[in-house]
């Protein structure tokens, strides 16, 4: 039977453009982009969504999502998103930030945006390393993890401990939704899809800030094959960053 006679059961979401991702092989940013696009389509938000893009590997989001987008300075996406949402309350505002952007330079902005109960959605990609700048230590780098700036492995005393963002943000009263999910298997991806919807739903219902943290692989900067990297994600990252929903409205 030819393809023409069959029913398409899995296709690229409408809000995703045809542009080929610039990400490295095995990197999960593309998957997170797809989940975001799927969720935009699910809630029919493409005509009112505004993406606010942090600095990092996700900075070209506008090439891939067919929505209005605004770049923001490193770490400031929640502040930019606040300005957009407050001046345009009918829009749907979603930030896309990495671990360096959100959990290092942008800790102040994310905490206070949550604390003000801003109705914005935060997509937070945690791959435990600085990707775009070439593999330096991130605030989420695991103890002992070698990076280009922790050549002997991260020593918590002195280099700091990994920061658990979903738990941290869930403690703030203005947070409506905070969850951590993973991208490395189809079962985890299904859970991630559900969590992404809740993070969007929080804004749709004006309940407050919704944050989804996605554990992702960065094979290039982990110096691993894609297969090794998903095994590391499963075996090591989840221990430090337990999966789960920490706040749900």
């Amino acid at each position: 039977m030819s393809i023409a006679a069959k029913k398409r059961v899995f296709a690229s979401p409408a809000s995703l453009t045809d542009n080929k991702f610039h990400f490295c092989p095995g990197c999960h940013h593309g998957l997170v982009h797809r989940l975001a696009a799927e969720t935009i389509d699910y809630y029919d938000l493409s005509s009112k969504a505004i993406g606010v893009i942090g600095v990092g590997c996700g900075v070209f989001l506008y090439d891939y999502l067919a929505i209005d987008c605004c770049e923001s300075p490193h770490g400031r996406a929640p502040a930019v998103a606040t300005g957009i949402k407050r001046s345009n309350p009918d829009s749907f505002v979603v930030t896309y930030q990495g671990d360096g952007d959100l959990a290092a330079i942008g800790t102040s902005e994310i905490i206070h945006a949550a604390n003000r109960q801003e109705s914005i959605t935060i997509i937070f990609v945690n791959n435990s390393v600085y990707g775009m700048t070439g593999g330096q230590m991130a605030p989420t780098t695991l103890p002992g993890q070698k990076t280009t700036t922790t050549p002997a492995g991260r020593q918590p005393v002195g280099d700091g401990y990994p920061i658990n963002v979903a738990e941290l943000i869930s403690t703030l009263k203005g947070t409506a939704f905070a969850a951590r999910v993973a991208c490395h298997s189809h079962t985890h991806i299904r859970t991630a899809r559900k969590a992404m919807r809740r993070a969007f739903q929080a804004q749709i219902e004006k309940r407050g800030l919704g944050l989804i943290e996605l554990l992702s692989a960065c094979p290039t900067n982990w110096r691993m094959t894609p297969q090794q990297s998903v095994r590391r994600l499963e075996a090591e990252m989840i221990n430090t960053f337990p999966l789960g929903t920490y706040k749900d409205f």
Binding site: S72, A79, G83, S87, S108, H112
Partner: peptide, 22 residues
Amino acid sequence: GVFIQAESELASINMVLGAAAS
């Protein structure tokens, strides 16, 4: 209108950026 006392000048100017982008 909207008045927000931000957490810092960094946040203030970037909220301005967001509203200006709108």
